[in-house]
Design a protein around this nucleic acid. Structure first.
Lengths: 332, 332
DNA sequence: ATGAAAGCGCTAACAT
DNA sequence: ATGTTAGCGCTTTCAT
């Protein structure tokens, strides 16, 4: 037999509603009864039943996180666990809980989202990645659910999102290299239909423009987010040209490129992206852009909870600062 | 206005309890009414309210996972995210949900556990690590909560647990090295008051014994789970001796040891533990023991759910096989 | 400032 | 095989 609000009421010689008010910290409760109630709660070792509260309040105070199982680097890249920590930190602070699920593939992911939201198990959803033409976003928008995505989706209508300023990040990296004297700077990006890639490429392009360096098509390649593709892309570049520096949009791509560079015994500066733990373990250690995954998560939770609590929010997004972590691969 | 079981009942011209039975797939419902009910549910786009079910059932069908924020390698070691995937996979299969929280430190962790369990938000708890003298375990045991831990706790009383056979894993590693001709094999373990370390050390010791090699105290060191300590421990060993092989109980320790070995230009075989992604990125690539974190998680969920559903379980633990991943550091 | 009572949406014992 | 009814534990409107 669990201790309920009624038991507390009886012991404190008040009504259940009074106890409820005390829990909710209602202002119009006399200090004296408040004390009696607290005492009774202590004595009985009472804990509010969260499920019952959720039912009565029509809110579970829970956020659902969907982890994309398909992400190639789910295990290599600590992004996810860092983002989750950020989410959790803010959520805990605000008295929210976190539910977690791995989506096997896109269809299954949507089923999880439907289950979470339709069953009222969660008040809102956080998506940790944005796909091209994301069906999950489409569904959430149409079903009018509260949600936030990490990454800037193509269609910004009715979406809360959090992202880095990818344009600026890459603009800064490029400028940094130019100021180090580099003129032939190659760019190996992830898939070009992704927003991130586009933004990063634009930053690269603009930085070159501003400093009067013209774009060389042969120095620009596309690669999936993995080592092999990075390796291949680098080799393609080296077939015709020898840049003095190479920028990539992901550490994994950079690792592959590094292998190609080493094989050919070249001395080329190299920059990665995401600052994964592996970056510090390359030879030479890899300069990379830290995206502050924890803050991305933190702000995502913040945005979503604001929306859930009907705060009149002017913001529908946050931009999180990136930071260039300089290592050996761009030194000397 | 959400659609409830009553609306469905009205439309299907049955009572709410009948609808409830249909949802629960009760056998004694005629095919005909079943169809009518399903049709009505479709028509009204009805979804059961999980919160209300939880309240009535006195079970949330939710497992709580506590992530130790203090773990030094939370971000480097994909153990956690892998274990969580295993948990999630089994839980989803059985219709259970996962709640997640990061415990800042041990005290705060216990508060989270209390909150989760006292509020009836979760049916059971999964601990991803076991500390020495674990207060969380102590609390859970005394409060008579259902829980499972990954790792073998010291006191096995009333505990469900999942772990590798650490004795065997290290016995095998040691034997493997001996058969490669090594005789002076050093051992750098994590803190010796941990069960894991003890078990692994015993495996090492026994393997030497069996093959008639006597223990050399100067080849045995203790180190925390990080690179610097590994580096220091290795240097201490090298001050007096030069083993032909070194076994460690963690990749991070091995990385540090590797640096020391390289600095002194020695050629020493080296084995890590946990098979983190970084292992494949060392020069030379590091031989390591894979612990199958996903399976640990999967079995943890299995054990806990069996207990929750009162399956008469003979088992109170699972042992998960490890696998030696051979790489360059033990070749030639 | 406090109490009575209805209701959140579902389940299950009991009745037929 | 199906309906009636009384909860599950909490919140909240409406009284007083």
């Amino acid at each position: 037999m669990p201790v309920t609000i009624k038991d507390v009421a009886k012991l404190a010689k008040v009504s259940p509603s009074t106890v409820s008010r005390v829990i909710a910290e209602s202002p119009k409760i006399s200090e004296e009864t408040k004390k009696r109630v607290y005492k009774a709660m202590k004595e009985l070792n009472y804990y509010p039943n969260a499920i019952a509260r959720s039912l009565a309040n029509k809110s579970s105070k829970t956020l659902g996180i969907i982890l994309p199982n398909t992400a190639e680097d789910l295990f290599v890249n600590p992004f996810f666990i860092q983002a989750m920590r950020g989410i959790s930190t803010y959520a805990q602070k605000r008295g929210y809980y976190i539910m977690l699920a791995y989506g096997e593939e896109e269809e299954n992911e949507i089923n999880i989202i439907k289950d979470y939201t339709n069953s009222k198990l969660v008040d809102g959803i956080i998506l940790l990645t944005v796909r091209q033409n994301d069906k999950a976003i489409k569904y959430l928008r149409e079903a009018r659910r509260s949600f936030v995505v990490i990454g800037r989706p193509k269609n910004l209508e009715n979406v809360l999102w959090v992202d880095n300023d990818n344009f600026k990040a890459m603009y800064d990296v490029t400028t940094y290299l130019i100021e180090k004297g580099h003129k032939n700077i190659a760019f190996i990006g992830g898939p070009y239909n992704l927003n991130v890639t586009k933004d990063r490429f634009e930053g690269y392009k603009r930085a070159l423009e501003i400093r009067g360096i013209s774009l060389d098509k042969e120095l620009i390649k596309e690669a999936d987010f993995n080592e092999v593709k990075g390796y291949q892309a680098m080799n393609e570049i080296l077939k015709n040209k020898t840049p003095s520096a190479v920028i990539t949009t992901d550490d994994l791509i950079a690792f592959g490129a590094l292998n190609a560079i080493k094989e050919q015994n070249k001395k080329i500066a190299l920059v990665g992206f995401n600052n994964t733990p592996l970056a510090a373990y390359q030879k030479p250690t890899l300069t990379s852009v830290d995206i502050n995954a924890e803050k991305l998560g933190y702000n995502a939770a913040k945005l979503l909870i604001s929306k859930l609590e009907n705060k009149k929010v002017d913001k529908n997004h946050y931009i999180v600062e990136t930071k260039l972590i300089e290592r050996e691969s761009t030194k000397g």
